[in-house]
């Protein structure tokens, strides 16, 4: 299965070298693999390194950040050696990305049409007229009414939901193998959120894309993802098929996330929350990075960071509690 993975990331480390000499280990040894057509979700609280993981895959890390280690392969082809120029041929073409803030993600001074056609002209070498026709077609595909008029309008004339649809239209315009969506609905109204997610799923099916969905909403995960990676402190702490992860949640952090979800079938007065704050990426606790907040913390946890271990088929956990679980069962 790994052989044909759309995306294969191994031991990715992206660090930020701060002015005061500190190093923020935003992503610290993340490995992941996405099969064709698969939807993989990355969940985690704010600051856990989700966006930086995504941007590292796109090689869009700006100073003072740098990818210090890791191999990223797209359809089996290594991307490290690629020049910036070669990368521009891949971005938007083989991997497309959608961002959290539709209000600011589009350039305010160019028309919607201009911003869609430029990607077609760059990657598909279309002429102006064909690109224009294709742009209208794409806008219709993502459910935008009056597409012929919208291409002449500017981003500020559209609502947030419409803008996110435009972003999706741009993302699918060159038939990418992989779509990365970084919290695509966080900034939208609840009613619009489901529409956008459904649209993305529909596009994924239609264009046979794999989807890397970043979110901090386990509800979204349960509905849309095939597989889940839970991130904390720049590392993956738990990883499994969605059903498995939701049913047999192992890591105390994931359990904490689950408890903060409202459940329809249980009558609770107040949602559980994880105590404390995410430690800053330049100052993780020694040992397990979750140890400062973990309700089950042991002495061992404060000195050594556990390895990500497979405790069940395709179920990985980074926690001392399950260290011998593999042997016992």
């Amino acid at each position: 299965m790994k052989k044909h993975a759309v995306l294969d990331v191994a031991q990715l480390k992206t660090y930020f070298y701060l002015n005061n000499g500190q190093v923020a280990k935003a992503v610290d040894g993340v490995s992941l693999s996405i099969s064709p057509g698969e939807t993989v979700a990355i969940v985690g609280e704010s600051g856990s390194g989700k966006s930086i993981t995504a941007l590292s895959i796109m090689k869009l890390i700006n100073k003072p950040g740098r990818i210090v280690n890791g191999e990223i392969a797209l359809n089996g082809k290594e991307m490290q050696a690629l020049s910036e120029k070669q990368m521009t041929g891949i971005r938007g073409n083989d991997i497309a990305m959608i961002f959290q803030e539709p209000m600011t993600a589009l350039n305010p001074v160019f028309t919607i049409g201009n911003q869609i056609t430029e990607i077609l002209r760059k990657h598909k070498k279309m002429n102006k007229k064909d690109a224009q026709a294709k742009a209208i077609h794409l806008l219709k595909t993502v459910g935008i009414p009056r597409a012929e008029e919208i291409i002449h309008e500017y981003p500020h004339q559209l609502s947030g939901g419409m803008r996110q649809r435009v972003m999706i239209a741009m993302a699918i315009s060159c038939d990418p193998k992989l779509l990365i969506a970084d919290e695509p609905t966080t900034a939208l109204d609840v009613t619009i959120q489901a529409q956008i997610l459904d649209l993305m799923l529909e596009m994924k099916e239609k264009f046979h894309m794999a989807l890397l969905l970043i979110t901090h909403d386990l509800g979204v995960v349960s509905e849309y993802a095939d597989r889940v990676l839970v991130m904390y402190g720049g590392q993956i702490v738990e990883q499994a098929k969605t059903k498995e992860l939701l049913r047999h949640t192992k890591h105390p952090y994931t359990q904490g996330l689950m408890q903060s979800l409202p459940k329809l079938d249980e009558d609770v007065d107040r949602l559980g929350t994880i105590k404390g704050m995410v430690p800053p990426a330049y100052n993780f606790p020694a040992g397990c990075r979750f140890s400062s907040r973990c309700p089950f913390v042991m002495d061992k946890c404060k000195v050594s960071n556990p390895e990500l271990t497979e405790i069940d088929t395709d179920h990985f956990v980074r926690c001392h509690l399950y260290e011998n679980a593999g042997d016992e069962s």
Partner: peptide, 25 residues
């Protein structure tokens, strides 16, 4: 800004990002 990140994510060349997307703004 976000829209420059978008332009880069679309695979626009550095020159396009600078002289089209950045300069005008």
């Amino acid at each position: 800004s976000d829209y420059i990140r978008t332009a880069r994510a679309k695979g626009m060349s550095e020159r396009n990002v600078l002289y089209k997307h950045t300069l005008r703004n």
